[in-house]
Nucleic acid binder design. Structure first.
Length: 224
DNA sequence: GGCCAGGACACCA
DNA sequence: TGGTGTCATGGC
């Protein structure tokens, strides 16, 4: 009887990425507050454009809660232009600042003392913060163990044959969180690895020969 | 000139 | 409840 070949386990996928890339430990931000703003600005936007908007804020010394909270919306909007949908994002950043002010006295660090699911629920109640943005803030700014599911995550899991593409955000998230230890450092690095691979891999083809996951990609017909 | 990029929301059937 | 349109810039 032939042995049944199974798709790779999620820890095995992580080990391969880790061997390939090393530790990623990552969110490109100089402070936890900047991480929060970046998480909002990157919605449906290439990170290179987010960096331009963050740079515009940084040059004007506006990348802090106190400075941004005082800034009128009319002055914030043009600074966010490079990140696209700047009218929308200015409203969303303002809504987050109001939330941070009212709930945590403007201190991102205070969010770290919340239970992960409690913080997630609170963030989701803020206008303009959906599941991915909430989890990005909780994981990368507050250091709480919630796995971030983004377009890269879905794309790579799809190519591995681990998801069909119809799953909800929470279903994909629970795929990770039910199979991995609740470790913020692990979730941080794992998601960072997926993003790095996602940026490297071609969007329209199966993972290519250079990919560390090539031998486990079900669509190539050679699953481990 | 069109498509896509580390989404979320409003609106409608 | 699920599907669709909208937001809008910059790179390729």
């Amino acid at each position: 009887m032939r042995a049944v070949r199974r798709p790779p386990g999620l820890l095995e996928v992580y080990r391969r990425l880790r061997r390939r890339y090393g530790h990623a430990g990552w969110w490109p931000g100089e402070s936890s507050f900047e991480v929060c703003v970046g998480a909002i600005l990157t919605q449906n936007t290439a990170w290179a454009n987010v960096e331009k908007a963050l740079g515009a804020l940084r040059r004007r010394r506006l990348l802090s809660f106190s400075a941004l909270r005082r800034l009128p919306a009319s002055e914030l909007r043009p600074l966010l232009r490079a990140a696209g949908t700047f009218n929308v994002k200015a409203r969303r950043v303002s809504a987050f600042l109001k939330f941070l002010d009212e709930q945590y006295a403007g201190r991102v660090g205070a969010m770290s003392r919340e239970e992960p699911r409690v913080l997630r629920r609170k963030l989701l109640s803020v206008h303009g913060i959906g599941p991915e943005t909430a989890d990005s803030i909780a994981l990368y700014a507050a250091g709480l163990p919630l796995f971030v599911v983004d377009a890269y995550t879905r794309r790579i899991l799809g190519r591995l044959g681990l998801v069909s593409g119809t799953e909800s955000y929470e279903e994909v998230q629970s795929l990770f969180m039910s199979r991995l230890p609740a470790d913020a450092a692990l979730f941080n690095d794992y998601h960072a690895q997926l993003v790095r691979l996602g940026k490297e891999a071609c969007r329209k083809r199966p993972l290519c020969d250079r990919c560390p996951l090539d031998r486990v990609c079900a669509k190539r017909g050679v699953p481990v």
